[in-house]
Design a binder for these strands. Structure first.
Lengths: 344, 344
DNA sequence: TAATAGCACTCTCAATACCAGAGTGCTAAT
DNA sequence: ATTAGCACTCTGGTATTGAGAGTGCTATTA
């Protein structure tokens, strides 16, 4: 799998790069002209034949040039991109960071803006998944007497207000009573993730009905129902550059992508894929995830906030995209996001 | 402009409808076969020549059939669609209403869901603009002492909580002090629209600096800044069925539409267009609004909530869509939305 | 006199043929 | 081991052609 001698690597790299440049199958003659390899076209042809046999490149038809296969791209990304060349121009790097810094305040807007910036510099589709709501750590809950039997309930995490709702109790209670109940609930559940909190409440409500007074039990129940669920119906948070789709995707691919975006199950699969390992990674050929999305690739990276809740941000483009530019771009953006989120 | 005799109307209607059905230019012979008009193809040809001269239909090229022009569609929609035929099957009507009723709770989700339903039954792109934030009527503002100098500020309207934020004051104040300031502010501004409120505060802060004590002035200032602005950057609220685009739009059109959606200025233009008159209306040929969107039409309707704040919901499809089905669909959905929103 | 049948004409679209260009694999020579 | 040379193959663009569909005009009919 990995035993390609130096000469073959060199040729493969040249093929991939010129294919990325020209978007046209690469023939042996053309290659000798573009790259100053000290070899004749005939020799290149021999090497190409070997590379094809090994599955790294293929011919669209007899007597066309060669095109990298998925395996070819994979190898290129993994072994042929040297670290040193993966740097962002300092101009671009500054531009990315600055744009983001101006949106520090609001997390959702920040993530949206990150996707927007990424798509506008890459000219590909940018997507960002917000941090999983369920993993947010609860700081405290607050009940505020509002009007008659109505109570304003607020869920607060380190990142700010998570959820708030006006709910209606069956009886009128004083603010002091509410405070007492809140204090009790906080003592038991603050510090947990929302998911854990919900689960624990469910258990306790069943087991120890008698432990709580009526009000506390009521509020606990309400608390549980207020915790936002990962419904899968909420719209995709950061999504930008859909109009670039027409530049690099076919009708079929566009349909596939748009459907995936609306569907949201796509995002879940995606998250599974990438959450396995941290850092920036490249998915070559997305037909594994969504059929009809072959020929498309993804460069994606994870970011995280102070409380270690993490999301992902990246781009979707043609498999023949310029990885040398795109990888550092995504990487930088994700790191900038992490920096800003952690500071807050 | 309107003086088409009965026979010509009949022919125009037949042309438009069969073009909608077949999506192919309609010739005189074909027409006589499909519709039992008591006329021969030669006669039809004569009439067609007149209709073409008057600008209602056109030929893609000599010796192809005729295709309706925008003017032709316009006339068809305005004069040739009889009221009686514009009814929804009761099945579909029930389906639409039921689906919506299950989302009564949350306005934004409700509107999203309405768009989703609309796109899934029409197979076209559905869009919905949420009510203008600026027109929401302010019910009251509330300041809640939170922690040390921090204060939780909540904006409430008839529809529920509009905005909330934790802000930081320069000094510590008691809840009583905060309540007093809130009471004062409420007495002055509750009942106004958010827009009006903001404007008035600006004026008063300039003119009557001396009238308020330090805290009230501070809170007024904060209040003003918290009022959500129509920034144009917030993502489009209800948008569904983008993947259907590939079924009826060309690459160019898709690009145009996607760009418009991301841009949001599109929505403003749109709202201007339709807010002029209430009810369901048809925009034939959207190149007026967005160039590159010719051949596309829109069926859109307004809806409103209790406090008369109104939004719009509709579909975008090919100009040759089936208006007889689409108009009642959109109409019904908008009415159902209004019903649900008013009840709440 | 309005409607119609017939006919010559026009234009598109699909199929076919053809050719230049680019690329390959193989063989023989260096 | 590398290379030059050559015969062969395949695509993509450009003509060419013929069938099909539709029109406008004219002569005919009721």
């Amino acid at each position: 799998m990995k035993k390609l001698d130096e000469r073959r690597k060199k040729i493969l790299k040249a093929i991939v790069q010129s294919y990325i440049d020209c978007n046209t199958p690469i023939g042996s003659v053309l290659l000798t002209k573009m790259y100053p390899i000290g070899l004749s076209s005939a020799t290149i042809r021999n090497i190409m034949a070997k590379l094809e046999e090994a599955g790294y490149i293929s011919q669209p038809h007899t007597s066309a040039g060669r095109v990298p296969t998925e395996k070819g791209y994979r190898f290129y990304v993994d072994n042929l991109l040297e670290e040193q060349s993966l740097t962002l121009s300092s101009d671009l790097s500054r531009e990315l960071s600055n744009k983001l810094r101006s949106y520090e305040k609001n997390n959702n807007v920040l993530i949206d803006e990150a996707a927007k910036t990424l798509s506008s510099v890459s000219h590909y589709l940018a997507i960002a998944t917000p941090p999983k709501v369920e993993d947010i750590l609860l700081k405290r809950i607050k009940f505020i007497k509002y009007e008659k039997r109505q109570v304003l309930t607020i869920l607060i995490s380190d990142e700010g207000i998570v959820e708030n709702k006006i709910i209606e109790l069956d009886k009128i209670h004083s603010q002091a009573q509410l405070d007492e109940a809140a204090m009790y609930i906080n003592s038991k559940f603050s510090g947990l993730s929302l998911k854990e909190a919900r689960e624990r409440i469910s258990n306790q409500l069943i087991k120890e009905k008698t432990l709580y007074n009526r009000l506390t039990a009521n509020l606990l129940y309400i608390f549980k129902n207020i915790i936002p669920q990962e419904t899968g119906s909420q719209p995709l948070n950061g999504l930008s550059g859909t109009s670039y789709l027409t530049d690099f995707a076919s009708m079929k691919q566009i349909k596939g992508i748009l459907r995936a975006i609306e569907d949201k199950r796509f995002m879940l699969k995606l998250l599974q894929q990438i959450s396995a390992s941290k850092g920036t990674q490249v998915i070559v050929g997305m037909d594994q995830i969504i059929p009809a999305m072959s020929e498309l690739s993804m460069v994606i990276s994870t970011f995280s906030s102070k409380s270690l809740v993490s999301g992902a941000i990246g781009i979707i483009g043609p498999t023949r995209m310029n990885y040398m530019k795109m990888i550092p771009m995504v990487d930088h953006t994700a790191k900038a996001l992490t920096k800003i989120l952690s500071k807050f």
